[in-house]
Amino acid sequence: MGLEKAFGESWVTSKMEFAINWARKFSFFNYPFVTACCGMEFMSTFASTYDIARFGAEFPRFSPRQADVLFVVGTVNQKMAPVLKRVYEQMIEPKWVVSFGVCATSGGFYDNYAVVDGIDKIIPVDVYIPGCPPRPQAVLDALVKLQQKVQKEKLV
């Protein structure tokens, strides 16, 4: 736009949409909705070996009102379903959901009376992570995919 010429090199111009999405994708505040086995790998991902802080998502908020990514970690059963729905509804926009592990994605091998077969029957999901439980590398990959998705989003 020529602003750099006018003000010198201390200025950077960008599109509003690009800048806001860039800021959002590197500062996820996540809400870990941890129920089951996948929580162990979730702990590993947050520890220093895999270090999710490199991607700017290391800060868990245990209040849904302050979080913008909901990690559903583990099996969700019929008794838990209303709780998950309520937590999701309490989050403010913009919000994203990561389905962590195969139980959250499809119910996994718990195909019986107690388990909901996939949280996408309750809430919309942005990224699915396969694995029972997924390895930390897979979690980081999913996080990068979510960042790419956020970068492409439209603000209006």
Partner: peptide, 27 residues
């Protein structure tokens, strides 16, 4: 372990394995 609205007793042999009774409307 189950919720109050649940009908029947799941571990009885005559309760079908996959008979779900959702608490909320599922898509």
């Amino acid at each position: 372990l189950m919720y109050e609205e649940f009908q029947g007793h799941p571990l009885r042999k005559d309760y079908p394995l996959k008979k779900r009774q959702p608490r909320i409307d599922l898509k």
